[in-house]
Amino acid sequence: MREKRLIKKLQNPSSKEYNSAILWIEDNWFQDALRVMKSIGVERHLAEEIFWESLTNLYQSVKEKKFEGKGTLKSYLLGICRYKSLDRLKREGKSIISYVAELPVDEYTRKKEDDDIIISEEIVELFYEILNKLDEKCKKVLTLAVQGYSMAKIAKSFKFDRNQSAATLNYRCRNKLREMVESDQFILNKLKKLL
């Protein structure tokens, strides 16, 4: 599938179109991404998880037209996989086999590599468990907001008349999540150890 057609499909609002593009990417690029991640020291089961997180980021960047064609889509995806692999290994306290310097360092990678506060994967998993206890509406609004959707678009996806309703829902769900986290002493202790 050609690059231009792939971008066009990812930007297409029809789920049939963008799903088929994502499917194509998975079928054709996953093995390359796996090789990159394995060379850094990521195990297969983790690599798949990182691949999907990276693919979500890529999809978002293309959909929101933030991908400005610096390099190819594939090198951009591999760049995100590489960054996320390094980040995940750091967070899990595992060693990095080799630093693959020849891989393209894209804007996304450059921007994020300077975060020097490391949150362990264990903490993220604990947050993930709590997040899953929220209702579907909350999960949806929080996901869309983190993916960078504007409140107008979120309102549209919920069929709200006013954008403010989406902002309010997002705020309430964030608060709800925070309350649940703060009431969990185990997580709080883990976080306080990082201070």
Binding site: N19, E53, I119, V124, F127, L131, N132, T143, L191
Partner: peptide, 25 residues
């Protein structure tokens, strides 16, 4: 730390969501 952890957890959720949808497709 809380906000970053929340963001990472939500990103994880979004990725799983996308993966499930594509698998279904």
């Amino acid at each position: 730390l809380m906000q970053k952890s929340e963001t990472l957890a939500i990103e994880k959720l979004a990725a799983k969501d996308l993966k499930n949808k594509v698998r279904e497709f």
